[in-house]
């Protein structure tokens, strides 16, 4: 510990150039961006497969899968980008993501006949270890801590 290689820890505490410290994909934020990237990839691949091969079996599930995949892609890009507009784009997409996972989660229990096959958000994302439910909460908390105008982001 404390060696010169621990750049992530020392760099943030000593204060970097403003541009670098505002980049949300640096430091611990890169883990959130990486997980969003992973969900973009896996949800996108799954949605593509479902829509191309068995769309007729459960159109609502698969439309939701595709919408979820698009939201993950937009969230990943806006999290990775700098600036105020990207920040608010991230807040909006992740907010919609949270509402989406809650709404689909509730309806997949209330009206299971609408969701005969799983989508990413069915049953609050239980097929993905509930990561889809936890991820937007962590994302929004992270964005709140890095909100514009705050002097010393941690």
């Amino acid at each position: 510990m404390g060696s010169s290689r621990s750049e992530g820890a020392t760099g943030r505490s000593t204060g970097e150039a403003p541009g670098r410290s505002q980049q949300k994909s640096r430091g611990p934020g890169m883990i959130i961006v990486a997980v969003y990237g992973l969900f973009s990839l896996s949800a996108g691949a799954r949605a593509l497969y479902q829509v191309l091969t068995k769309f007729d079996e459960a159109p609502l599930s698969f439309v939701l899968s595709a919408v979820a995949a698009i939201i993950y892609v937009v969230a990943t890009v806006s999290l990775a980008m700098r600036g105020r507009r990207a920040y608010w784009a991230a807040v909006w997409t992740i907010g919609i993501e949270l509402l989406g996972v809650l709404a689909v989660g509730v309806f997949s229990y209330l009206r299971p006949e609408l969701f005969p096959l799983a989508s990413v958000w069915s049953h609050f994302g239980s097929g993905y270890g509930y990561v889809p439910l936890v991820l937007p909460v962590i994302g929004l908390l992270w964005l709140y801590r890095r909100r514009p105008g705050r002097n010393s982001p941690r």
Binding site: S6, E7, G8, A9, G11, S25, R26, G27, P28, M30, I31, A34
Partner: peptide, 10 residues
């Protein structure tokens, strides 16, 4: 490209 401990966690 990202040379920090967080990159190792990823």
């Amino acid at each position: 490209t990202e040379r920090s401990r967080w990159s190792t966690l990823m």
